[in-house]
Computed example of a mutant assay.
Amino acid sequence: MRNPIHKRMERFETWQHLTFMACLCERMLPNFELFCDVSKRSDQAKIFQNILNLVWEHLTVKGAKINFENQLEKLEEIIPDVNQFDFYGVLPAEDACEGLSELLHAIIAGETLEQAIKLSQLSLSTVATYVEMQQERELNEQELKNTPEIQEELDVQWQIYRLLNECEERDIELILALKNEIRTSGISNIGLKFNQ
């Protein structure tokens, strides 16, 4: 699904792309946490959270030295195999891991625009899959766009984009505010809330 912000993101600097991606990963985190809770792997949820915390640190702490190749290896060990589970929750959990993997690849390779667009689409497709699962049928693009869930996801992505777009230079306070707002709300891109 095309999101009008993709074209506009071409003007973003690296830190803006990475912050946008970190926000989307933060929104996907509860999906992974809930899956880990149900499948009794709460230690894996902590690993995911720690990796994401390191990304935020990379964005806000000047000169933070973090080995992201090492973090990517840790992440790869906790990606759930969808064939081993017969419940829906494994899909958004796998998407969350894929999203975080895109973010780490973006940091490592320095290719951020393409990864940011990919992650934006991934988050939308997680929501689309969720809506179709709820309605027990496939929906065409127009039907999907009209659902409140997709509307909400597009709105949130647009809101994050707008706040970042207003910055002339890296704004640590804004980055932290975005992180805290999403984390405090604790609501995932498919509307799940995981209470520890």
Rank of each mutant, 00 (worst) to 15 (best):
L178P: 05
Q157P: 06
Q84V: 02
E168S: 14
R27A: 02
I117N: 11
E136N: 11
S42K: 15
I107G: 05
H105I: 08
E149H: 09
A116C: 12
K74G: 06
V55Q: 01
I51K: 04
G89M: 09
T147N: 03
W15A: 01
P30V: 04
G63D: 12
Q16R: 12
E153M: 13
A96Q: 09
E152T: 11
A106V: 10
N67D: 15
R162Q: 14
M1G: 09
M133A: 08
K193S: 13
N70V: 04
E114W: 01
F68Y: 07
L72H: 10
F32Y: 15
A106S: 13
E76L: 08
I5V: 15
N189E: 09
K145A: 14
Q44P: 00
V127P: 07
I182T: 02
S185L: 10
L29E: 15
Y88R: 08
L192Y: 14
W56L: 03
L75A: 04
A109V: 03
E102M: 11
H6K: 05
Q157C: 05
F194Q: 11
E149Y: 10
A116L: 05
L174M: 08
E173A: 07
E138G: 01
N70P: 01
V131E: 07
Q49L: 09
Q44G: 01
L18A: 04
N83M: 08
C25N: 14
